[in-house]
Structures are given as structure tokens and as C-alpha cells.
Nucleic acid binder design. Structure first.
Length: 641
RNA sequence: UACCCCGUGGUGUAAUCGGCAACACUACUGAUUUUGGUUCAGUCAUUCUAGGUUCGAGUCCUAGCGGGGUAGCCA
């Protein structure tokens, strides 16, 4: 097979919002002592420090990293951390970063994922230098395996999977030698070639590295290098019936690509001695593996297995459900690549196994959208407001000028039709209101955003006592921007003219789980029991005319409510908006507090932590209750990835 | 009860050679505001514990405690 793919420069649509800062910090890679010419104080995490040291000592002459996903699922926010790290380091230090698919297990992998992963990396704003597949290296790997066999460093083992497990020993007891360990190199070579030729059924034999069956590090107890699996591979077809294990493929692929820093997550820490062993025995380029803590976020699950389960059991609409922490999910939710990158930069890199508060993610997108999202008005829970003296105005409709972004003059303004018949938010009116309620009440006044001040003099109710109409007069002296009245009102509310409003669908998304750590479940329950039943509420809404021009993917702020994005489900005349994140809601806090209500009532609905944070002591845990006594018995199956 | 890694505010990350525990977020106060948004100002720490070395310890040493990971022919 072709051992490597040439540079893949076929990406037609490199992201438009790509971080333009890429080239300007291209520091001299040989200068590890002062890579910060700007003089600006930057924190260098431990990986960066290790790189600086290796560059300074001459161990490596540059920075070459890689992002190595297995194409067996969609990328999630945890992968984004790794992507930002690997690509970011290469950018900062003038190095390169490859995208390599770790496709060594055809029973689990699929081209569907190969495509989505590439799209996600690009969308995040990164461009790989080379695109590779571990399967491109299968020939080289096999040659190296024969070399190790001939040098007496590997042997063919006849043990079944179950026997292999028994012979391996336990955490507290050493293992025993496999009978195959005493084969001659010639015997092993013959057996290996016959394995490759397909003479043996699945599971009949393995090739194993000959290291040390008594090593306290179980990865060194003669790890399997090849297993037999008569399964076609999505790229190599049926050429192979033996497939390399992760440890045997990964480091060697790194080596072939001349990677200098092989950055991975903490659970591979005890694989590092094996990574090193292979490179040493083969006498090939030897990258340095460095491990960091994977990302955990409150109110979410991150394991591929659980995400897959959510999709397969239809707890969500798919991998791109806006509640999923997948990149496709976040994209559909309306998150920007910039905000995800900012989040990843914000949370740092360390070896401590921490859990990031999800509000930091929410805050990152809020911060970015505050700068770039045009403001619009939308009423999600409408009640009619009639201006009883509007006839005095002369014309039935007046166009009002509204600023698009108060923080950005260059965003300009737009015209909104104002009339005597408006929709306002039901929440924004109370017949009798507490002192701190700044919105409209009977006998009170409020400003209509970009419009006039109105005074409420009456309400109309139906037979059940529900308010159906609010009657106000407007004050002609108080037109927004031309107010000559000198009147001050405490509140400003949003509105939409009834005759000019468009009806749209709004999907208000909230956190998928209602507890901080969904993985922390009592006996007999699963993380699914923590799904937030109110994570999606769909409603009709009235929006101002300017929104009719919005395209799929456009993000706006519905004033006083939150940030919204036009969903791909939108059709002509039937727009669908997803809530990306709500605005900070100080009023909800005040209201909750005065009611002594610890939960609910906020714009985010259930799941928002209100006042009721659980736990008090330090909870630096990823998982709980998973502590396994070293009983000498294998634990029940558990999966993280 | 084997081996490896990790313990700094509510959360996360810093702290040059051992020298005033800093930054960000949250929370809480207050100011500003035609978004209860934004912005601005302020408040919140026995550096896991106990010893030791030192003029001086988050940092070095010893012991303990706590958390995470590891026994796939997964990655």
C-alpha cells in the first residue's frame, strides 16, 4: 500500500472565521529561553515548559504534533481541548500538526466519522499540515514486527483471550510466561507469516512483545501487538487479517511522521514505558509522549459510549442535537469556533483531574456573541398591549430606529415598525408587582425599547381571570432618541408590532442533565436517570420583520432574552431558532431570592443551578464510587471512551 | 491491599533559583445603563495534614491522608 498520503490540500472551504493570529507568534523554535518577545505575561503550562526545555537542550529541533482520533465516533468538546492544544502549540512555535486517524480496529470504525472529524477540525479553525491514517503504515509496521521477531523481542502466542488474561496475573500478583515465549525466532517468524496469510481463525493466535511478565506495570507484561481479525478495513479492504494494537501502532505512526511531542491524555501514562520500549528496540525516531488531564464539564457526560447511547436510544435527536457536547452539537446549538477556542485557552492544561463548571463554556459564547451578535426583538410568550390614544398619533405606523449593538457603533441600526397594537412578554407585566419589579404594572409606566414610554391604565381579562389585553396610553414626548419629556422610568421592555410580526418556532435548550455529575449514580441507576426532562421546550414566538432576512446559522440576540441561532430545520416562512444561551438574568435571581425559591423561574428553566448548588466540600472527582479494591480480581467492564 | 499520577479560594489555572500567594470565572456589594444585558469598582485562602531543613517553604525532605488511573486480542 501507499505508505503515506501526500499533503492533503484539498479542503476547499477553510473556515472563514479561522484564527487569524496563526502566523504572528511564530517564535524561533530553537530559542527556548525567550519565546515571548511581546513582553506580555503569559502562563506557560507544563507541556509548553517541557517543549521549551527540549528545544533548548537540543533533544528536538522543532515542534511537530498530531491530533490522532479514532474514527469511531463524533468529536466532542473534550477533543476540542486536545485539538486546540496540539494545533495551538504548533502554531505558537512555528511547527506542524498532522491529523492522523488511528484506524487500527475495523470492527468499530467507519468512514462516516472520518468525514465528520475533518469537518469539525476545520470548523474549529485549524488546518492540518498532513492528513494520515495509521492504516497507511500497516506495511511498515509489519516489517518492523518481523524485525522484532527475528531479534527475539516478540513471539507468537497460542493462548486464548481468556488464558491470556489468566496468565497476565493481577495488579498484585505477577504473571506467568506463555508457552510461546520459548519459541525460536524462526518458529515465530513462520507463525507470524502464516497469521498474516490468513491460516488461522480469529483469536487463535497473537503476536506479543517479549518484555517482562512480572513487571508491576501490566502494559509491559508481554503486550499483544497483533490480533487476528478477518474483518475488512474501511481503507485497506481485505488485504489484512491481522491488525495492530494501539500501543504497537500509535508510537510507530508518530515516529514515521517524525512527531516530536506526542500529547495524549492521562490514562496513557502507564503506556509510556511501552511507547518508549518499542522505539528503543526498533532504533527509530523517538517522540516524547506527554500526558495531560482530559476535560470534564459539569452537567454533561463526555464518554463516546454514553454519547452513542444517547443517540441510539433517542434521548436526543442525533449526534448534532444542540444539547450534545459534540462539536456538531455545539455548532448546531450556535456556539462559535472562537468561543470554543477561547474556552479551551481559558481552562488551561494540567495533570490535575478537574471538572470545569459548564457556566464557563456558556460564558465564553456569551462573551463572544455580546460583541458580534446583532440585537433583535422577539416575544416568546406574548400578551397584547393596546395603545388607547394611538389615534392621536396621526399615522397608524411609525418606523422607529433601533441600534443593532450598543457596544459596537459600526453595527449600525435598523428600522422597526411601531403601532398601536403590540405584543409584549407576559412576564413583563404584573397587575400588582413587588417594589423591585421594574417592568410594567397597572398604574405604572415603562419604556418600550426604541419606542415610547407607555402608561398602563387598565387590563382586560377573560372569564377565567387571565389577562388578555393591556391598555396603555403612549406619551408622544418620549420618543426614543428624541425624548423631550424629561421623564425617567426604571424599566425598558421589548415588543413587536402585531401587524408586522412574523411567527417563528423557538427551541429553548437547556442543560441535558439536571445534576452536576451525571455519572455519579446510586446503585441500580444510570446516568440516563439524570436527564433533565426540561432540556428542550419549543414555543411559537413573534419576531420583528428584520429577522425574516436571517439565514441558517445566523446568530442574533433577542433583546433581554438570550442569543439565538437560525436552525437548519428552517424553511421558507417557517423559521426555527435555537437558544444558544440565555442572557445573564439578574431579575430571576432577585425574584427567586425574595420568594425563598432556590430553583427554577429563570430563563434557563430547570437545570439552572439557581441558588441550590449541591455539595459543599471539595469535590475534585471525575467519577465516584469507582474505587476498586485491589482484590486481585478483575473489575466489571467499564468504559470511558 | 501492587504500580503510576495528582492535591493552591466556590471553580479552574499561576507563582523565576526557596523571597509580598496572582489571574480568570462564579457568588455577593455598589456605581453606570433606553437590554434587570454590557461596562466599572469592591469583597471572599490555615496552599490536604503533621513533622523537618532554612533568616525565610505553596515550592525542598520524611511520614501520613485524600483523589484519579491501570488487570481488552479497545483506543
Amino acid at each position: 500500500m501507499n505508505a503515506s498520503r501526500p499533503n492533503d490540500h484539498t479542503q476547499p472551504n477553510a473556515p472563514t472565521d479561522r484564527d487569524a493570529a496563526a502566523p504572528d507568534h511564530a517564535a524561533d523554535p530553537n530559542n527556548g529561553s525567550d519565546p515571548n518577545p511581546s513582553g506580555e505575561k503569559t502562563h506557560r503550562h507544563f507541556i509548553r515548559q517541557a517543549i521549551d526545555a527540549d528545544l533548548a537542550s537540543g533533544r528536538f529541533d522543532g515542534v511537530r504534533t498530531r491530533f490522532p482520533p479514532e474514527p469511531n465516533g463524533y468529536l466532542h468538546i473534550g477533543h476540542a481541548k486536545s485539538i486546540c492544544l496540539n494545533f495551538g502549540l504548533a502554531q505558537e512555535l512555528g511547527g506542524t500538526c498532522n491529523l492522523r486517524f488511528d484506524d487500527t480496529n475495523p470492527t468499530k470504525e467507519d468512514t462516516e466519522y472520518v468525514d465528520s472529524i475533518q469537518e469539525d477540525v476545520r470548523w474549529l479553525g485549524f488546518q492540518w499540515d498532513n492528513l494520515h491514517f495509521a492504516s497507511d503504515y500497516f506495511d511498515q509496521l509489519y516489517q518492523w514486527a518481523e524485525k522484532l521477531v527475528m531479534e527475539g523481542h516478540a513471539y507468537v502466542c497460542d493462548l486464548t483471550a481468556e488464558q491470556t488474561r489468566e496468565y497476565r496475573g493481577t495488579l498484585t500478583e505477577p504473571g506467568r510466561d506463555s508457552p510461546g515465549r520459548s519459541n525460536t525466532p524462526e518458529e515465530n517468524l513462520d507463525l507470524l507469516r502464516r497469521m498474516k496469510a490468513g491460516e488461522f481463525p480469529d483469536g487463535a493466535k497473537t503476536l506479543r512483545a517479549k518484555i517482562d511478565m512480572a513487571n508491576p506495570n501490566i502494559n509491559l507484561r508481554d503486550p499483544v501487538m497483533y490480533r487476528i481479525s478477518h474483518v475488512p478495513h474501511h481503507r485497506t479492504g481485505d488485504k489484512w487479517c491481522i491488525y495492530p494494537m494501539y500501543d504497537w501502532a500509535h508510537g510507530q505512526s508518530d515516529s514515521i511522521e517524525k512527531i516530536t511531542f506526542s500529547i495524549c491524555t492521562l490514562e496513557f501514562e502507564h503506556h509510556r514505558p511501552l511507547y518508549d520500549w518499542y522505539c528503543e528496540k526498533l532504533e527509530i525516531h523517538h517522540p516524547r509522549q506527554i500526558e495531560f488531564a482530559r476535560l470534564n464539564i459539569t452537567y454533561t457526560v463526555m464518554s463516546k459510549r454514553k454519547l452513542l447511547q444517547l443517540v441510539q436510544e433517542k434521548h436526543v435527536s442525533g449526534w448534532d442535537d444542540p444539547r450534545m457536547p459534540t462539536i456538531v452539537g455545539l455548532r448546531r446549538r450556535g456556539y462559535t469556533p472562537e468561543s470554543i477556542r477561547a474556552f479551551c485557552a481559558d481552562i488551561g492544561v494540567a495533570k490535575f483531574n478537574s471538572t470545569i463548571d459548564v457556566v464557563r463554556l456558556e460564558n465564553a459564547v456569551r462573551e463572544h456573541l455580546n460583541e458580534v451578535a446583532p440585537r433583535r426583538m422577539a416575544v416568546l410568550d406574548p400578551v397584547k398591549l393596546t395603545i388607547t390614544n394611538w389615534a392621536d398619533h396621526g399615522s397608524p405606523v411609525e418606523m422607529m430606529s433601533a441600534i443593532n449593538n450598543p457596544g459596537d457603533e459600526s453595527a449600525g441600526s435598523r428600522e422597526i415598525p411601531f403601532s398601536g397594537s403590540l405584543w409584549i412578554e407576559r412576564d413583563d407585566f404584573k397587575e400588582e408587582a413587588p417594589r423591585k419589579f421594574f417592568r410594567l404594572k397597572k398604574g405604572g409606566a415603562v419604556r418600550l425599547r426604541a419606542g415610547y414610554i407607555v402608561d398602563c391604565h387598565d387590563v382586560v381579562k377573560d372569564d377565567d381571570g387571565n389577562i388578555t389585553e393591556i391598555l396603555c396610553t403612549y406619551d408622544p414626548e418620549t420618543k426614543s432618541g428624541e425624548d423631550t419629556s424629561g421623564r425617567k422610568v426604571k424599566g425598558t421592555i421589548h415588543w413587536v408590532s402585531c401587524d408586522h410580526a412574523s411567527e417563528v418556532t423557538v427551541r429553548n435548550y437547556d442543560r441535558l442533565f439536571s445534576v452536576e455529575n451525571p455519572d455519579n449514580v446510586p446503585e441500580g441507576k444510570t446516568f440516563l436517570d439524570h436527564i433533565n426532562p426540561d432540556s428542550l421546550s419549543t414555543t411559537k414566538a413573534y419576531v420583528e420583520p428584520a429577522l425574516c432576512e436571517a439565514k441558517v446559522g445566523d446568530r442574533v440576540q433577542f433583546e433581554r432574552l438570550g442569543y439565538y441561532v437560525v436552525d437548519p430545520d428552517s424553511k421558507d416562512g417557517e423559521m426555527v431558532f435555537n437558544r444558544i444561551v440565555g442572557l445573564r438574568d439578574t431579575w430571576a435571581k432577585i425574584a427567586n431570592k425574595s420568594e425563598g425559591n432556590p430553583k427554577g423561574g429563570g430563563k434557563q428553566g430547570a437545570g439552572k443551578q439557581g441558588g441550590g448548588k449541591q455539595g459543599s466540600g471539595k469535590q475534585k472527582t471525575g467519577k465516584q464510587g469507582g474505587n476498586q479494591p485491589a482484590s486481585g480480581k478483575p473489575p466489571q467492564a467499564k468504559k470511558t471512551d
